[in-house]
């Protein structure tokens, strides 16, 4: 039987980057990162530069999510360390924050001049809606590429509902649904159904 064409996610990875390329990749992701730098970091590392698989990235982000602090900031530290040690962590973190900080402080200093222009407010309003949609689309895209079994989709949707509708505090969600999800992964592994996630 002919082998089916390899899906996008199975192409070979590129060699691990040093601190310089890490800084550039995270700087670009930070600067473009309207409405959530995570979307852009994922795009840069998984789809554009092919330094990590979708699953690798999702796992690092999952760890970054349960640790205190910004999930993408924690991911930058861990990804930087994996590829280039402490210099890698500093390069990724510096790249992620430096340029957005400059842009943000310029906005803060200039804002009084712009605040009353209705065109600016309308443009930013539309952009905010698109950014929210981008974050949703990114979550769907990751799910589609990871192809999780139904019980993990249910746990993911339960997390969404708990956070978005029931407003359950994040640590509670992680402490309750995290262990359930881990148990589901172990159960699926024992059944030997093939898929690891």
């Amino acid at each position: 039987m002919p082998k089916p064409p390899a899906p996008d996610a199975d192409l070979p990875l590129n060699p691990p980057p040093g601190p310089g390329p890490l800084f550039v990749a995270f700087a670009k992701a930070g600067l473009m990162g309207f409405g959530g730098a995570q979307v852009w970091v994922r795009r840069a590392l998984v789809e554009e530069r092919r330094w990590m698989t979708e699953r690798d990235y999702a796992e690092v982000l999952g760890l970054g999510q349960v640790l205190p602090g910004p999930n993408v900031g924690n991911a930058a530290v861990m990804i930087g360390r994996r590829f280039a040690g402490l210099p890698g962590s500093f390069a990724a973190t510096g790249g992620l924050y430096l340029f957005p900080l400059i842009v943000l402080m310029s906005l803060v200093l200039l804002w009084q001049e712009f605040a009353d222009i209705p065109e600016v407010a309308a443009f930013m309003h539309g952009l905010a809606c698109a950014a929210a949609g981008m974050v949703i689309g990114n979550g769907l895209r990751m799910t589609g590429r990871l192809k999780p079994p139904p019980e993990l989709i249910a746990i993911g949707l339960a997390s969404t509902a708990a956070a978005a509708w029931l407003r359950v505090p994040l640590p509670v969600i992680v402490l309750v649904l995290g262990p359930i999800s881990i148990a589901a992964v172990v159960w699926r592994g024992r059944r030997g159904a093939g898929r690891r996630l």
């Binding site: 409405g35 959530g36 995570q38 699953r55 999702a58 796992e59 982000l61 999952g62 760890l63 970054g64 999510q65 349960v66 999930n71 905010a128 809606c129 950014a131 929210a132 949609g133 981008m134 974050v135 949703i136 689309g137 990114n138 979550g139 769907l140 990751m142 799910t143 990871l146 999780p148 993990l152 989709i153 746990i155 993911g156 949707l157 339960a158 997390s159 969404t160 509902a161 708990a162 956070a163 978005a164 994040l170 969600i173 992680v174 649904l177 995290g178 262990p179 999800s181 881990i182 148990a183 589901a184 992964v185 690891r196 996630l197």
Partner: peptide
């Protein structure tokens, strides 16, 4: 692997709440 569904679920929630 177990933390992945929770993380993605929370990403979706962030998008829904800001939307």
């Amino acid at each position: 692997a177990g933390l992945v569904p929770v993380a993605i679920g929370l990403i979706l929630a962030t998008g829904l709440v800001t939307g």
